[in-house]
């Protein structure tokens, strides 16, 4: 093909390429917009998508209403800061109070942030190597100050009964502290057997480090 003929063709084809380029961009952004809309529709139909359960406020102190439900995602941070994945708007919680992640068969693993502490099923959990983290399953209780939350896991989640241990197993395998006798540990009988909302919450006996070391308990 001669250079002159090619130049004419190339000059003419500019409009074709430009038109296709613009169409590709328009189609791309239409697709992005459509996906954005579908995502919102999907979230409306599956409002619990991405969540593993919820915290129910059993005792909210002065800050939270009892019975309030707070959704819990697969993993993230919990605290009073709005950047957290689970926001507890209470002065009892630090801006980032603890980290959590859901592990199949194990449940919701809780790890306190540096310098923070909380009680999981009556057992003290604070940051540091001595405290490798606590596990929460359906019905477990989380307490910080006078705020008490109960975890409800959604049905169908893979938390097998064989993963539910007696406290002695935790000591053997994970070196986790044993809760003192008499502390209610809902869920160890299987989450189907756990405390239901009908059972009144009677408070927890909180186990501090000294008691776990073998001192007498109240």
């Amino acid at each position: 093909m001669s250079d002159e003929l090619y130049s004419v063709l190339a000059l003419g084809m500019r409009y074709w390429f430009l038109a296709l380029g613009v169409l590709i961009v328009v189609q791309t952004f239409l697709w992005l917009y459509r996906d954005h809309r579908e995502k919102h529709q999907r979230l409306r139909n599956l409002p619990d998508a991405g969540m593993i359960g919820e915290f129910v406020v059993l005792s909210g102190g002065n800050d939270l209403e009892e019975g309030k439900v707070i959704p819990v995602p697969w993993e993230g941070m919990l605290g009073s800061s709005r950047h957290c994945d689970v926001v507890i708007p209470s002065g009892a919680f630090a801006p980032v109070h603890l980290y959590f992640s859901f592990e199949k068969r194990m449940g919701l693993m809780i790890e306190a942030a540096r310098g923070r502490e909380c009680y999981v099923d009556g057992v003290l959990e604070k940051s540091g190597k001595k405290h490798p983290g606590e596990r929460m399953i359906h019905g477990s209780i989380l307490q910080v100050g006078d705020i008490v939350l109960r975890l409800r896991l959604f049905a169908g989640l893979d938390v097998e009964r064989k993963a539910l241990r007696k406290p002695e197993d935790d000591v053997k395998e994970y070196g986790m502290p044993v809760a003192s006798q008499g502390v209610p540990r809902p869920g160890y009988g299987g989450y189907a057997d756990s405390q239901t909302e009908e059972e009144p919450f009677t408070g927890l006996h909180l186990v501090k480090d000294e008691e776990k070391d073998g001192n007498s308990k109240t």
Partner: peptide, 15 residues
């Protein structure tokens, strides 16, 4: 391809 096409390429990156 021209500046308009260049803007289209930029928009592809934005996408």
């Amino acid at each position: 391809f021209g500046l308009i096409f260049g803007v289209c390429v930029l928009l592809i990156y934005v996408a």
